[in-house]
């Protein structure tokens, strides 16, 4: 039997309980076992217990790590094209996000990653929101003077243009930073907003459930060299299982969008959502800043951006 190590950075739980991203990995392991009659055993390593998040991508490219459920933008330092996986206001709804895989942009991204030694096994998209302490952060005008943890270069570029002071803090310090007032607002996925327990501090939540400028691609990826070393039937089983699990991932993400609203309002926070006009304002800023910055990185980046804009 072949053992595949599947790593991720999210909190570990069981197949039925906990972070849906961890559950998805465990479901993947279970499905692979039954599909291959135990020929492939997948070991799940939650919470970066195997290696640091940033090191996972490089390790997969080299064949030192088999698989990872990995946020695309984290790989942006090694493969700049990957930053498109968290481009502000480029993807604004789940329908929009799901259309990527079969669209030209999906094919191009798959191709780019293949060339870098990575196979995209299962597409997972997630939206996120803003937890803020003093005042809500919904429109660009709200951002002025706020200290915000944007979490990625592209988000920060957009937020800075809107007048926010962005700061970089380790994610496990988000809570303390908001508590002491070192930062006023944190932008991250619904699931992480829940696991950071920011509802204990935040007075406002801008939910991404209906629409958002924050959509992140965090697929299950696999090392191409490992993938290529497997027999054809096992390769097929992997890709098939990956595709079959995509609805579970989307469902989990959507449930957390509801959960985060419920948890925040229960804790007494005001839950806001964004209207189309406000989203357009953010998009205009994002185009002039993050998109332009990304498109200028390489010809491939520019092309990916063009193809992504075609998806609607």
């Amino acid at each position: 039997a072949t053992t595949l190590k599947l790593s991720h950075q999210f909190p570990g739980g069981t197949i039925d309980q906990g972070d849906f991203r961890d559950r998805m990995c465990r479901k993947f392991a279970e499905a692979m076992k039954s599909k291959t009659n135990g020929e492939i055993e997948v070991q799940v390593y939650p919470g970066s217990s195997l290696m640091k998040t940033n090191a996972q991508f490089g390790a997969m490219r080299k064949g030192a790590l088999d698989m990872s459920l990995y946020p695309a933008p984290y790989a942006g330092g090694e493969v700049p094209e990957m930053n498109i996986g968290l481009m502000p206001a480029l993807v604004t709804s789940y329908e929009h996000a799901i259309a990527w895989k079969s669209g030209e942009v999906g094919r191009k991204l798959t191709e780019v990653l293949q060339a870098k030694g990575i196979v995209l096994v299962s597409w997972v998209w997630q939206t996120g929101g803003v937890a803020s302490r003093g005042k809500p952060l919904v429109s660009p005008d709200d951002a002025k003077g706020m200290k915000v943890r944007g979490g990625s270069r592209e988000m920060d570029l957009m937020l800075k243009q809107a007048g926010a002071a962005t700061l970089s803090i380790p994610s496990n310090e988000s809570y303390a930073a908001m508590q002491t007032g070192a930062c006023d607002a944190v932008i991250t996925s619904s699931t992480s907003l829940i696991s950071f327990r920011l509802e204990e501090l935040a007075k406002h939540l801008t939910s991404g459930r209906e629409r958002s400028y924050w959509f992140m691609l965090e697929p299950i990826m696999m090392s191409k060299s490992i993938f290529d070393s497997l027999p054809k039937d096992q390769q097929d089983a992997i890709m098939q299982t990956g595709a079959e699990l995509e609805p579970f991932g989307q469902q989990g993400a959507k449930e957390d969008d509801l959960n985060v609203e419920r948890i925040f309002s229960k804790a007494g926070a005001q839950v806001e959502s964004m209207d189309e006009a406000t989203l357009d304002k953010w998009r205009d800023i994002a185009k002039a800043t993050a998109w332009a910055d990304y498109g200028a990185k390489s010809e491939t980046c520019a092309e990916l951006l063009r193809l992504a804009e075609k998806v609607a």
């Binding site: 940033n54 933008p73 984290y74 790989a75 942006g76 330092g77 090694e78 700049p80 944007g150 990625s152 270069r153 920060d156 570029l157 962005t166 970089s168």
Partner: peptide, 11 residues
């Protein structure tokens, strides 16, 4: 060779 940058806003 790859022109790798750090994964931060500053990059």
């Amino acid at each position: 060779v790859d022109g790798q940058t750090s994964q931060s806003t500053w990059g």
